[in-house]
Design a protein around this nucleic acid. Structure first.
Lengths: 242, 242
DNA sequence: CGGTTGGTTGATGCAAGTCAACTACGGTGG
DNA sequence: CCACCGTAGTTGACTTGCATCAACCAACCG
């Protein structure tokens, strides 16, 4: 599959970015600048790319010499096993960063779930920025720690939870990340297959479980790619947020 | 459960440490010093502690103001959920480090699986060391990245693998970490319950799967806490090491 | 030497996987 | 503009791997 370039739809991109900026993590000790903001400061070195839905952004065996900031769209970070099994480490949303792990070879590949616009920076430029700036270094540590925490939280989902709870956890986290509240309409950019590969379930189970949640009133499903969060409290209880 | 102090058995501790040092991760770019080695350099600030089997080392809600280096024994990093479910993030072996994530509150608690000796350092002393030393900073980043990678690898185990494969993955990783080879005898310090909580299986399934692996010749089980690795190749294939 | 704890083994049930049919939708071409 | 097709999602019938419940066993310890 070749990498296809799309023209960026700039209005939604800006809206998405702003939403992240408002809802994004804020560090009390710093001047409210995020790592993504610091990346913007070296934007001169950054290149804007566009990828069409389902096209690869980078591969598992590519050298890890770039850092990315998602501008718009949804990305899946996934890993293919020799026998064809796939698991999705995480989905990345506008404002999220990729490629900041300190490993020579990439642990996963990235693919565009929807049409995606992102900015890439040479790893070297970022390292240089970090080397001379302790604020950036501490944000980087915090970023890595948060990513680790997220992964460990997901270990609980996969290790202990049943289908209903996994789907609830997924919906709650997605809602929190995009800033959706009770009653809001949540966009599911990814396919049932994607969700299944992220939660360790099959497409059928994902589908069945969603309709079951509709049956018990926690959600509405106006169409396959939108969910209305009717009862966030119930979902949070299911997700067993610690 | 009170924290009990045991006298450290120093001979095994030294042996375990040496084994780690030989088998431990080596950074081609650096002078072969590990983060644990750097910690030793501020050992003046470190305090040696001993914990008896099954006693807590720190709790989920403790402040994250200490960094630890395991000297001897096995530690489980685990998390208890409100409803009593437990999942074990990972087991830590001699030479491993704990408490290096950059989060105000601890994401998990640590308990001694066996009698444990460890050295703790004030987080502040470590941060001071890192602040003035780019070598240490890069090792810290690498450490965090590796931890993240391990967690993500485990996501695959929990998300995609069946019981046989999970047990195989567990044995292979443990063998690699302690430097055990084909034919060697591997000590399982942890209980079946611990293994189950780490792999998302029940005690019974862990037990059954181990006997099944004995039945097909991959392992021998001289006693409940030792495994002879008869066919590492077969185990690695089961584990589907990418 | 009984009691306790941790591990194994067996019988049974159930949640989720598998296989398969059907439906809804979005794009394309007549 | 509509008919067609391909893809993605839903639903149903059946299977199965693991959990559950329960009995049993072995090691350890007072």
């Amino acid at each position: 599959m070749p990498i296809a370039l799309n023209t960026a739809r700039s209005a939604p991109a800006a809206a998405a970015y702003k939403r992240y900026f408002v809802a994004g993590p804020v560090d009390g000790r710093s001047q409210n600048l995020t790592l993504a903001d610091w990346l913007e400061r070296i934007e001169a070195n950054g290149i804007k790319h566009s990828f069409a839905r389902n096209h690869p952004i980078f591969n598992q065996d590519d050298p890890a010499d770039q850092v990315y900031r998602i501008v718009s769209g949804t990305v899946r970070l996934c890993r293919y096993m020799p026998d064809g099994r796939r698991y999705i480490v995480d989905f990345l949303l506008p404002g999220d960063l990729m490629g900041l792990t300190e490993s020579p070879d990439l642990p996963a590949c990235a693919e565009a779930v929807t049409d995606v616009v992102l900015v890439s920076f040479p790893r070297a430029a970022f390292d240089q920025l970090a080397e001379g700036n302790s604020e950036v270094r501490s944000l980087l540590l915090r970023h890595l720690s948060n990513t680790l925490l997220t992964a460990q939280q997901h270990l609980f989902v996969l290790g202990c939870q049943k289908a209903r709870e996994r789907i609830a956890s997924f919906l709650v986290r997605l809602a929190d990340r995009v800033g959706a509240h009770c009653g809001d309409r949540l966009d599911l950019a990814m396919s049932r297959q994607d969700i299944g590969d992220h939660l360790g379930l099959t497409i059928e189970t994902v589908s069945r479980t969603l309709t079951a949640l509709r049956g018990t009133g926690e959600i509405l499903i106006p169409n396959a790619h939108q969910i209305v969060l009717r009862d966030m409290a119930a979902l949070r209880i299911l997700a067993a947020e610690a």
